[in-house]
Design a protein around this nucleic acid. Structure first.
Lengths: 142, 142
DNA sequence: GTATCAGGTGAAAATGATTTTCATTATCAG
DNA sequence: CTGATAATGAAAATCATTTTCACCTGATAC
């Protein structure tokens, strides 16, 4: 798997490119759909043994600030992380086993249809908009 | 504010109706949009002083199992709770001040339009489907 | 290439949200 | 009214995550 473009983007953020960060990037790329810090740590450890969980957290936080990674919360309090810049998509979260699949389209009806087409039984959905409320936009937005 | 219908629904779940649970229900009703356990605790304490935070958590968990309350995760790891059975809706989460507003319609385009109409600047959205994957449905779903 | 040093790392401890434990209290079916 | 048993409160435990701090190492300047 080619991590060069990611490495370039990460370096562009101003930080240094260490073996640990490379391992986290590669793990993210290999794991794909919204893994937890723990899962990323386990995978990245195979690439760079001795890598600490704390470093994984710090690295993910750094990448998130640089916009390289997005942190999201699905069905529980554990943060989940995924690389940004891929195609915009949403998730299918299984309430029984917790597996997460991704879904490319984002319109409601189409999404539900797409989910059903893969045998996923939809029992609930969640749709949230993030941004800045009127009060926080003016006078100095953010 | 009338809590009688809620009290009835809560009792129907099989549990006992205590002053603490009544206070939590009332607080949920008064607070409206997706408060945290902490916020619910603070409000419910005014109704029933001495009410412990632990009890709030337990009560919310119980209500969630009975389908009276839904627990959700928005922009951070803190769980948020809201009464079920109201009109289906979604949320506007301000990334700056953290306030949460609710939105009635759930179709993407309409939702974004509705958000903008209230001066909310949308910078991202999240849409998740929950349910059971093919593997978990068969042979004994759930 | 090598020195330099700010940025990065690992381990341990701290934190914050939530859950568990356990002794005590209170609801409500009979 | 009373007993069985569910619910409560306080303290301690747990889990994910963050902070601290002493040590290390990329990558720029030489």
């Amino acid at each position: 798997m080619n991590t060069a473009p990611l490495t370039r983007r990460a370096r562009a953020g101003g930080g240094r490119m260490t073996a640990q960060r490379r391992a986290v990037l590669q793990a993210l790329q290999e794991l794909g759909c919204a893994p937890t810090a723990e899962e990323i740590h386990t995978r990245a450890r195979h690439i760079r043994s001795g890598l600490g969980l704390v470093t994984v957290y710090r690295t993910l936080e750094t990448f998130a600030q640089e916009g390289l990674v997005q942190r999201l919360f699905l069905d529980d309090a554990r943060g989940r992380y995924e690389l940004m810049g891929g195609r915009h998509h949403h998730h299918l979260v299984c309430l029984s086993c917790g597996t997460i699949q991704s879904l490319n389209r984002c319109f409601l009806a189409a999404a539900e249809r797409a989910a059903r087409a893969r045998g996923f039984k939809v029992t609930a959905h969640r749709f949230e908009l993030f941004g800045y409320c009127r009060r926080c936009q003016a006078p100095a937005a953010r």
